[in-house]
C-alpha cells in the first residue's frame, strides 16, 4: 500500500511538472494587457518616463523579459518554496489573497456538496429499487435536466424569481446593506442568506451526475449473485436493500465522494461570478479578465493539484474500502 501511494505521488509530481509547464507556456501567450495598461497609466504622469521604457521596466519587474523556459524555471523555483509571487491586480501576495477568498468558495461548495449527497443518494437508490417505475423515470428526467441546465441560465431564473419578483434575496453579493450594524449572529445569518441562491444553483446543476452514479451502481449491485441469494433465503425486501445492497453500493459512492473532496476548494467560477461572491472562482475570473498572470497561473496549478489529489484519494479509498481490490 505504501509503495502504491508513493508511486502514485511520484507520478503526480511528474504530471504536475508538465501540466504547469503547459499552463505557463499558454499564460505567456496571454496578452499582457495589465502591464500595458499599467505602463500607459504610469507614462501619463507628469515628468514620467516614456511608455516604452515603462513597459520594459515592468516586464523586467514581473519576469516577462526572459524566455518561456527560463521564466518557467524561475516560477517553479519560487512555487516549490510556496512563493507564488505577488498578484498584479490585487496588489498583494497571492497566498494572502488566496487565504482571504478560499473560505467563501469552500463553504459554498461544502453546503452544495452536503445537500447533493442528502438528496442524490436516497433518490438514486429509490430509482434503482424500482427500475422503470414512475419514480425511476422522474429521477432520471430530473437528473438529466440538472445535467443539461446551463448554470448561468438557472441562476438567472432564480435571480429573476426570488430576487426581482419575490424580493426575498439580494440579487448578488454576500452581505446586505445594513451588514455593518448587525450583531455577530445576524452577520452570520445574513451571509448565509446570501448563499442560498448560489447553493441551490450549484446543487441543482451538479446533482444529476451523482444521482445517476448512485442509481447505476445500485442497479449493478441489485443484479449481483449475492442479492439473488439473499432473496432466495427469503429475506424481506427491506432487509435485502438496506443491509445487503446498500452497504455494497457504498463502495463506489464513498470513492466518488472522497475523490471530489479536494474539488470543494476549487471554487465555482461561473456561479461565483454570477452572484458576485468573492471566492476563489470569482477572484480568478477577474484575474483572467485583467490579465493578472501570476494569480491565474497559481489558480490553474492549484486546480491541477486538486484534480490529481482527488484521483489519488479516490484510488486509495477504493483499495481501502473494498477488500477485493488488491493493490498492484
Amino acid at each position: 500500500m505504501k509503495k502504491f501511494i508513493l508511486k502514485r505521488l511520484l507520478i503526480s509530481v511528474v504530471l504536475l511538472f508538465f501540466v504547469s509547464l503547459i499552463i505557463y507556456t499558454i499564460m505567456r501567450c496571454m496578452p499582457t494587457s495589465y502591464v500595458e495598461n499599467q505602463a500607459r497609466a504610469l507614462a501619463t504622469r507628469p515628468g514620467s518616463k516614456s511608455y516604452q521604457e515603462w513597459v520594459s521596466q515592468l516586464n523586467a519587474q514581473y519576469g516577462l523579459d526572459v524566455g518561456v523556459l527560463k521564466g518557467y524555471f524561475r516560477w517553479l523555483s519560487g512555487a516549490i518554496r510556496l512563493d507564488f509571487g505577488d498578484s498584479w491586480y490585487w496588489n498583494q501576495p497571492i497566498l494572502d489573497k488566496f487565504k482571504d477568498v478560499i473560505w467563501y468558495s469552500f463553504f459554498l461548495s461544502l453546503a452544495a456538496f452536503i445537500l447533493e449527497m442528502v438528496i442524490a443518494i436516497p433518490l438514486g437508490i429509490a430509482a434503482a429499487r424500482k427500475q422503470y417505475s414512475m419514480t425511476d423515470y422522474a429521477v432520471t428526467v430530473f437528473a438529466l435536466i440538472g445535467i443539461s441546465l446551463p448554470s448561468f441560465f438557472f441562476a438567472t431564473i432564480l435571480k429573476y424569481v426570488f430576487s426581482i419578483k419575490l424580493g426575498w434575496f439580494d440579487i448578488s453579493g454576500t452581505v446586505s446593506r445594513m451588514h455593518q450594524s448587525m450583531t455577530d449572529t445576524q452577520k452570520l445569518l445574513d451571509i448565509a442568506k446570501h448563499m442560498i441562491l448560489p447553493v441551490i444553483t450549484l446543487t441543482v446543476v451538479s446533482i444529476g451526475g451523482m444521482m445517476r452514479y448512485v442509481r447505476a451502481n445500485m442497479l449493478e449491485v441489485l443484479n449481483s449473485d449475492y442479492i439473488r441469494t439473499a432473496r432466495a433465503k427469503g429475506l424481506s425486501e427491506n432487509r435485502v436493500i438496506n443491509h445487503h445492497a446498500f452497504r455494497n453500493t457504498l463502495i463506489p459512492i464513498v470513492t466518488l465522494l472522497g475523490g471530489s473532496l479536494p474539488g470543494l476548494f476549487g471554487g465555482a467560477m461561473i456561479t461565483e461570478q454570477l452572484f458576485q461572491i468573492p471566492g476563489i472562482g470569482y477572484t480568478s475570473y477577474v484575474s483572467v479578465m485583467q490579465g493578472d498572470i501570476p494569480f491565474v497561473m497559481f489558480y490553474m496549478v492549484f486546480l491541477a493539484v486538486l484534480t490529481l489529489l482527488g484521483n489519488l484519494i479516490a484510488d486509495i479509498l477504493y483499495a481501502a474500502v473494498d477488500p477485493r481490490v488488491r493493490v498492484n
Binding site: 504530471l15 504536475l16 501540466v19 503547459i22 499552463i23 499558454i26 499564460m27 501567450c29 496571454m30 496578452p31 476549487g266 467560477m269 461561473i270 480568478s284 475570473y285 483572467v288 479578465m289 490579465g291 491565474v296 489558480y299 490553474m300 486546480l303 491541477a304 484534480t307 490529481l308
Partner: peptide, 15 residues
C-alpha cells in the same frame, strides 16, 4: 486531463 478547462478557455478567449 489535469489542465483546468474553463480558465484555460477563458485565457484562450482573451488571447
Amino acid at each position: 486531463y489535469c489542465i483546468p478547462s474553463l480558465p484555460l478557455f477563458l485565457i484562450l478567449g482573451s488571447i
